[in-house]
Design a protein around this nucleic acid. Sequence first.
DNA 1: TATAGCGGCTAAAACGTTTCATCTAGCCGA
DNA 2: TCGGCTAGATGAAACGTTTTAGCCGCTATA
Lengths: 343, 343
Amino acid sequence: MATANIKEVARHAGVSLGTVSNVLNRPDMVAPATRQRVLDAITTLGYVRNDSARQLRAGHSRTVAIVVLDVANPFFTDVVRGAEQVIEEAGAMLVVCNSGEDSARERRHLELLEEQRVRGVLITPVDHGPQPNLDKLIDRGIPVVLVDRGTGRVNRCSVAVDDVLGGRLAMDHLLDQGHHRIAYLGGPLSIAQVADRHAGAAAALEERGGDAELRVAVTTSLTVAAGRRAAEELLTLPARQRPTAVFCANDLIALGVLQELTARGLRVPADVAIVGYDDIEFADAAAVPLSSVRQPRDQLGRTAAQMLLEEAESRDTHRHRHVVFQPELVVRRSSDQPRRTRR
Amino acid sequence: MATANIKEVARHAGVSLGTVSNVLNRPDMVAPATRQRVLDAITTLGYVRNDSARQLRAGHSRTVAIVVLDVANPFFTDVVRGAEQVIEEAGAMLVVCNSGEDSARERRHLELLEEQRVRGVLITPVDHGPQPNLDKLIDRGIPVVLVDRGTGRVNRCSVAVDDVLGGRLAMDHLLDQGHHRIAYLGGPLSIAQVADRHAGAAAALEERGGDAELRVAVTTSLTVAAGRRAAEELLTLPARQRPTAVFCANDLIALGVLQELTARGLRVPADVAIVGYDDIEFADAAAVPLSSVRQPRDQLGRTAAQMLLEEAESRDTHRHRHVVFQPELVVRRSSDQPRRTRR
DNA sequence: TATAGCGGCTAAAACGTTTCATCTAGCCGA
DNA sequence: TCGGCTAGATGAAACGTTTTAGCCGCTATA
């Protein structure tokens, strides 16, 4: 059964085509009796609006896209949930595209989205350099908001979380607890987040002066296994040189460290304190609940979506903004034990 | 700058409008020289196809939707990745919608998707009962494939994984290892998966005869915390009645059990063996790597997508199918130790 | 030499909306 | 009685494609 169109509805209700459209879009412009007749016709015919035609007329669609690096990554899933909320409240629709860290796929997605004349694009781009694809979108008048990447570009909005501050928070906490020998575990340093978190930690240490030292162990990846290996390394040190606290670039590494240390008979936090990063769901559920730096992920998504909608509404008066959120340290058992200052 | 349309391209290239369309859609129908002229015009004008117009003409879009219960759930993210792969290979686009287990949102999504005349819908419906929304879609000629839900409806395809078999596999394994006192932990039983996995385990036990016994402990949720509580309960039993193996309805529970047992000084698997379900990423990374029943999640997505595309291609000749996949037991350390039969 | 066939192209119709300029009928005030 | 006004409804144009019927000029065939 071919779907009924607006013309059939009009005929069925004995009105003109324009009237049906008015019922749909500006219901109070049409007399109640007529309106009811039209609505009846709509239900009896099972009429459903044709969005293509609507979009064609309008010149743009009512969907917003978000292009993420990995749909399965909890960071992005939370961002998506936040964005979704805002977009849906605005009566629009959010479509999620997955670039899978593949710039060819990213480009393909952007092309399709452009063909669809989407209202705007939230994106964490695969590449860090110049982004001709995104510039093209913007030239076409499609607003783009960068998520967690390269704040500061002049022709688009962005949202991000301050990783340097995150590093600071973790380090300040460990220093407050009285630790003097501290390690930073994470890598590769080519990942901006890893480098920033380290920079923050180092800066905090610097500022506090004192005699505390920060040992850096670069891992090859941000996985549980890498964390275990790093912990093994630490254990080769003589006890008196061994760090009494480790700050990990993410929670997976931290969990690996936790596992390896307890397996080798060390107590957390009594012998070694641990602070992770990301506050993933498992941080709280670990054998020893893990202290971690939490990023306001869904707020990231919400804000990005709001900025996008705002730009889409008022392109001319819009001024691009770059919002940086502050992370927050969640202290749990893994680092919650002040260290007797013995020296 | 308003986007150029096909007519401008035609004028610019000195050909008719239809020729441009042919260059776009059936390039080899047009003489090489002309084709090149058109292509040049396209690039110099920065022409981008307008998908709305295309869809309007075609009567349907080239996008397929997947509606999941939770974008952040690893099960669904893997299904999405599988589906994505197939859909993209077919030159279409997959949009991910999140119902968040809220049937109102689900309905809203389906309405929008219907307005968009999507090519088809993959969905794990929120409600188990009759599904008038889906029936409506199908009446309209939009193919629907059920994912991991209510196989056997006659007017749509479905894919699922055999949870009963999964329960069997786990139980057979534990019996093979020589266990006689076994516990099943999970709940609430109102969740079909939880009930099915138990049913499978019970059936396996039944068939094997023997004197082994299965103790069932119903938990209130499928979380790490629930697993810990369940383990605590088990520990109140006198050692001689305590199960020597537990099969958990999912990995979160299993991880909770593992944590609690080791915290209380029991060894896994020597004192108690554990088998989980789902084979989440953390199963392999746990303190004691966790045996688990793995579901072919991305294959679920791939197959569902294939069935959908097939149905969309040939609606008339299409026969609905219900594919049930078999799960697979991944044995790791947590259950990898035959038990000396001492009785 | 007439004709059929064919490659290459054109012109026009159609898809289903929204919008906008008009039209009509009814009412009020002059 | 007439002109002006308004609420309500109309009809046509426009959005940008794809598709289809048909045209033109050429070559191969009878």
